[in-house]
Amino acid sequence: MSIGVWDYLPEYEQEKEDILDAVGTVFASGRLVLGDSLRSFEQEFADYHGVAHCKGVDNGTNALKLGLEALGVGPGDEVVTVSNTAAPTVVAIAGTGATPVFVDVRDEDFLMDTAQVEAVLTPRTKAILPVHLYGQAVEMEPLLRLAAERGLTVLEDCAQAHGARHYGRPVGTFGAAAAFSFYPTKVLGAYGDGGAVITDAPDVDQNMAQLRYYGMDRVYYVVRSPGHNSRLDEVQAEILRRKLTRLDAYLERRRAVARRYEEALGDLTGDGGLVLPTTAPGNDHVYYVYVARHPQRDALLKALEKKGVDLNISYPWPVHTMTGFSHLGYAKGSLPVTERLADEIFSLPMYASLSTDRQDRVIEAVRATLREL
C-alpha cells in the first residue's frame, strides 16, 4: 500500500466515537442550519484566538471572498498578495471584482517578501492579503505599518496556519480580519467543507452576518444589500467544536513529526541538495505541510513513487502562470523566487495521526532515493 501526504482514516479510527456522537447530536437537535452548534463553535473559535467575533461560512474560499467584501473591497480595487499559494487565495480576490497584485516570496521560508510590498502599492490598492503559508506566519509588523500609513486594510489568510503564533500572538489577530479554511486536510479539518472569518470589529462581523445570508439582516426576505448563501452547517460546526478541544494536541504531534524528519534527514542537507523547512524568527510553526526542496525534485518524486511513497507538490504552478490569470500580465521571470520554488519544492507526509512506522518507511525511502540520485 502506497503512503500519501495525508490520510484522515487513522484519525477517524481514533476519534470515531466522538465524531459520530457529534453527528447524532445535531440530527437529534431539530436544527440543521444556523443553530446552537454553529453559534457555540463561533464563540469558542473566537475565544481560542482572543477576539470578539467569528462567523462560520461554507468554505475557506468564501471566507476570503466575504472577508474582503466585509472590509469594503470591490471592483476597481487592488489587493496585494503572493503567487506561491493555493489558487483559492487569488480566486477569492478576483471574485470580489478586485485585481490581485503579486509580490515575490522569500527564498529561505517561502513566505511573502514584505520588503517588496510598498513598491507595488498604487492609489487603487485597498488591501494587503498575507498568506500564512505551510503553517507559519508572514512577517506582520511591516505590513501593519504600511497599512496604517496608507489607509489600507489587512485580511490574513490563515487557511494553513490554525494555531500558529507570531511573537506569541495567534495568527489571525493582527489584521482587520482573518479567514480560515476547515477543509479536511487542514490542521483543524472538518469532515467536509467549511470556513470562518474572525475579527474584533463589530461592523465587519455585522457585514459578515449579512453577506453569508443573502445580504439579509436577521429578517428573512429583507435584503439590505445583495449577499451570498454561505453558511457553515451544523454537522460540521459540531464536529469542529469537538476537534477544537484537541487542536493543541494536534499541533504538538505535528511538531513531533517535523522533528523526526529533521533528525532523520538533516545529515543529507547542504551542497545544493536537500533543503528542509526553516522557521522564520518569532514564529511557532504548526506544519500544515512539511515542504522540502531538492534541485532534482521530479526525479526524486518519480523514484519515490516506485517505492510506494506518493508525495505532493505545494505548489507546482504559481498562480500568476495559470491561464486563468494571464490577463494580469505577469511575464515568466517576473517572480523569480516563486518560479524557482515551483520546480524544487515537495511535501512529505504530515498529519497528526501519521504513525511512526509509516513515517519511518518514508524516511527510509527518501534516504535510499537520495543516495541513488
Rank of each mutant, 00 (worst) to 15 (best):
residue 320 H to F: 02
residue 209 A to Y: 04
residue 269 T to L: 03
residue 98 A to M: 05
residue 359 Q to F: 13
residue 288 Y to N: 15
residue 65 K to R: 15
residue 368 A to W: 00
residue 120 V to W: 11
residue 305 E to N: 00
residue 97 G to E: 02
residue 137 A to G: 13
residue 19 I to W: 10
residue 311 L to K: 02
residue 237 A to H: 02
residue 124 R to M: 04
residue 368 A to Q: 01
residue 242 R to E: 04
residue 171 V to Q: 07
residue 59 N to M: 11
residue 225 S to E: 11
residue 117 V to R: 05
residue 106 R to S: 06
residue 193 D to R: 13
residue 177 A to C: 06
residue 135 G to R: 14
residue 83 S to A: 09
residue 338 T to L: 10
residue 284 D to F: 15
residue 230 S to H: 12
residue 48 Y to F: 10
residue 331 A to L: 00
residue 245 T to L: 08
residue 244 L to Y: 01
residue 321 T to S: 04
residue 288 Y to M: 14
residue 232 L to V: 01
residue 249 A to Q: 10
residue 286 V to A: 12
residue 189 G to V: 11
residue 67 G to R: 07
residue 83 S to K: 03
residue 280 A to K: 03
residue 180 F to A: 01
residue 276 L to C: 00
residue 288 Y to V: 11
residue 257 V to K: 13
residue 200 D to L: 11
residue 313 I to F: 02
residue 229 N to F: 12
residue 344 E to W: 06
residue 29 S to C: 03
residue 156 E to Q: 05
residue 140 M to P: 03
residue 86 A to T: 14
residue 77 D to P: 14
residue 275 V to Q: 01
residue 181 S to E: 08
residue 236 Q to N: 14
residue 250 Y to L: 09
residue 351 Y to N: 12
residue 333 G to H: 01
residue 343 D to T: 15
residue 358 R to I: 10
residue 196 A to M: 05
residue 56 G to T: 02
residue 79 V to T: 03
residue 200 D to E: 13
residue 138 V to D: 09
residue 94 A to Q: 01
residue 113 D to G: 13
residue 205 D to L: 07
residue 289 V to Y: 12
residue 160 Q to E: 15
